[in-house]
Design a protein around this nucleic acid. Structure first.
Lengths: 195, 195, 195, 195
DNA sequence: CATGAATGAGATTTCATTCAT
DNA sequence: GATGAATGAAATCTCATTCAT
């Protein structure tokens, strides 16, 4: 079972770095120190291996989303926690997260495939979470009166954009977490004392 | 020459939708209504076709960046124009832009390749532009005293995140342009009357 | 197109001699003097090549059955002609005919496959032809009062058994044609003067 | 030992239905409810398993041939008994018999292999038996003066053809046994009262 | 400019077989 | 007896590319 794990780890990294098609089964097994047929012993094929990695990743991702604390003193802290969770995740599972951001999109055409399914689910979850948050924050006067739908899309875009930068190794997010939160806070929260 | 253009258009779309590796020369020619050797008459090969498309796209992109008006009354208007330019671009050249966002990243390892080169150039350009802008805006008291480096990264992430959403067809950016600008404005510009 | 024909001829022979599974695409192409991918240029795959050969063979077979003369003085001559047609066919297309007898049966489980389909069609045709023949021959007193269904099955079995012997190279049917006809005639036709 | 038998039974069936090459060791073990290495505990390999099944079958076949009664009142009864024996055999061991008819032929090229060897032996036995029978029957005036060699081939073809029909599940031999015998009797035996 | 036919290199996958337990 | 894990060898198939016309 150790070897099975070696395959999964190596494949995650390579799929993330090079994409699904550009990664050959031979390369995976060579770097994992096993022989090619072992992939086919543990998985139905290259596709199934990819699917397996992706399911695990999204499962982990969604289970973490569920742990977000919904009893924060302010609505903004929920957003802060959501952003923090993503920064945390990409530190722990850089390849896996990058896989969902970068390799998935090229496999999105077939609406039944696992990428499409999970990316939709993610979007729905984040939209619902943020919409709640903004609605409540605006109604209790914590937030400025921003248009909810657009602002939700925007925050999701920010999260995605940041993870992507990081995946491209264009940024070492250190310090960006705090600043992203501040940026949003200034834009959303009413009556902040000026910096 | 019409057929050459058909090849380029079809290839742009397919490379963007499926990635470079997942797109076969046969598929390109079939969907373009030509035969395979014609690719080799007009280009050195599949790589060269890709390179051609990418260079044109980045050339167009950089030439547009150069048209940005640097004599705006306020510094924020420069940022507004920059964001607007990207929204404009993705409306006009959706496949080409999505290509740079989605297909390039998996080809980034080789530092000599055209993707790496241009993405670095893009990043340098945007960083320089936004750094100038923020530095000046802060010094003249138009902007809050935000940490420049991080905020620059953040704005770039927002732009990328938005284009990516659009490419994934998760969003119809209509309305998002204006709201993105407002979001940033609230966060950056001092003494706005509260909404 | 000459090379395509070389593939078909070589494949027919090898499929017949060794069976479908035991024949490799490499072997076919080597013996046909071409390279492997050429199979995939002209056919969808090994299966499609097999299917193509089989369709042509059965098409030829059924078109010959249709040429059988139905205006013979006696009913027995129809049977004689039917047997003769099969002997003739196996002389002209030994590999192809042997393919239908020997390689088809192992592919019979899937009821939609081309073997199943054609073998059923063949059986239906022969049954209908022979049933007519026997019915009429009995009613006009040319034939003994034999049980029609069973006798039809038996004549089909004789034809199949003979072709199979020949395919196995256990027999050189010379002389067998005439004798097969005599054997059946003695059994079926009334009032023959004893040999 | 029960599991060994499960392997043998399942393998017989699958080899007969699909052929030797098309049947994988994995399929055999799955359908037999065991694991692959067990085949290698009981047999030297897939070839050896096939050989084992085939030897048993032919051994049983030849031992039955030896039980044929040679002291019948008429020569024709010998032929009748021979045909009956084959009908009987295919009822009892349908897979095994079909194996010899259908799977063996594709393995006939190598003259040292077990199929070639046994099929030759079978042919020799039947030829010798029937030749004796016909020679004697003709000399004592029981049979018409038929050409012996050809008629022998023909009777063997009939037997093979019938077993094959049955194996292909094109026929339920019920009733055919009796009628096959009658068909041959009418053709061979002198002075039958007309039906 | 354009194509039908063909190919070299290599990818994915299968399968009989073995090893360690 | 029996098995889960693993493998060497080879099969089918794909794909970018080229040749001859």
């Amino acid at each position: 079972m150790k070897k099975k794990n070696d395959i999964i780890k190596t494949a995650s990294r390579l799929f993330a770095e090079q994409g699904f098609e550009a990664t050959t089964t031979l390369q995976i097994t060579k770097e994992a120190g096993v022989t090619e047929p072992l992939i086919y012993y543990h998985f139905k094929g290259k596709d199934d291996l990819f699917t397996h990695i992706l399911s695990s990743t999204f499962k982990e991702y969604f289970s973490r989303l569920e742990t977000l604390n919904n009893n924060t003193p302010t609505e903004f802290e929920k957003i802060e926690n959501l952003i923090g969770l993503h920064f945390q995740l990409v530190e722990e599972l850089p390849h896996e997260i990058y896989l969902t951001i970068n390799t998935c999109p090229t496999r999105l055409k077939d609406p039944e495939n696992i990428c499409a399914e999970n990316i939709k689910k993610q979007k729905a979850w984040l939209t619902s979470f943020l919409t709640d948050c903004l609605d409540k924050g605006i109604s209790i006067g914590e937030f400025n009166k921003v248009p909810v739908t657009e602002t939700v899309s925007l925050i999701i875009a920010i999260i995605n954009g940041l993870l992507r930068q990081r995946g491209l190794k264009l940024e070492h997010l250190s310090g960006l977490n705090k600043e992203s939160v501040e940026f949003c806070k200034r834009s959303l929260v009413k009556n902040l004392t000026e910096l």
